[in-house]
């Protein structure tokens, strides 16, 4: 069975004067350990599709089945538990909590788990070491460069060891050299068996992916 199965997914938003259909009967499957790039022009429904796959945005119609679980049949709090266990988000513009240090930002998903402080520190330190930020763990996000902030965001998304990483324009705010570094990091994660689904405008980034899903007007174009 595929890790992710999307069947006839429809998402409509109420616009100012009419209904906007962001996803129009999208169906697709994603296997475990795939590295997918979701591409398409602005307004094609990429980010909406990503948020629906992440359990953040209820679809108007259709179903999203992840690891055999129809995630939108879950109650609100169970859906939160699902996100914690299955999904790691890397947001555009990092989305770090400004008043928490690098270490605390990385530990954030563990704050609602049963891990002790010591365990949380050990796991976080290990991941920060991997992304090369061990020495900067006590800094606040505004004391880091863009690339470093992105690496913190990636470390945070990996802390729970989620089966799926969803990344929305992860290099959108980075220079090209740093962007490549980040993409290499995603590639190495994928090489270790991590499923990565990435929304991007950048064809160079898409080259790192194993498969590209092209969206146009809310539909899969290719």
């Amino acid at each position: 069975m595929s890790l992710i199965m999307i069947n006839s997914l429809v998402k409509e938003y109420n616009g100012a004067s009419d209904v906007v259909r962001a996803c129009d009967k999208i169906s697709c499957t994603i296997e475990k350990s795939e590295f997918i790039a979701v591409m398409g022009p602005s307004g094609s429904g990429k980010s909406t599709l990503l948020s629906i796959m992440g359990g953040l945005n209820h679809p108007t119609n259709g179903e999203v089945i992840i690891d055999g679980l129809d995630i939108y049949s879950l109650a609100i709090e169970q859906l939160a538990d699902f996100r914690r266990e299955y999904i790691g988000f890397v947001f555009q513009s990092f989305q770090l909590i400004p008043y928490l240090t690098v270490l605390e930002n990385v530990m954030l998903p563990l704050a609602v788990t049963d891990y002790s402080n010591k365990q949380q520190m050990e796991i976080s330190a290990e991941i920060l070491n991997r992304v090369g930020l061990y020495d900067k763990m006590h800094r606040l996000p505004n004391q880091l460069s863009g690339g470093e902030q992105e690496r913190v965001a990636i470390a945070r998304c990996l802390i729970n060891r989620p089966p799926i990483v969803l990344a929305d324009e992860p290099t959108g705010n980075l220079d090209s050299l740093t962007g490549i570094e980040i993409m290499e990091l995603f590639q190495s994660l994928n090489a270790e068996g991590q499923t990565v689904i990435m929304v991007t405008h950048n064809p160079e980034n898409a080259e790192f992916a194993g498969r590209i899903i092209q969206l146009k007007d809310g539909k899969i174009a290719a």
Binding site: L56, E77, A80, R83, I87, V112
Partner: peptide
């Protein structure tokens, strides 16, 4: 709102 959205995306329940 953005910060709360991050908490929720990271798996924080409403009660958290």
């Amino acid at each position: 709102k953005r910060e709360i959205g991050i908490f929720r995306a990271l798996g924080f329940r409403q009660k958290h």
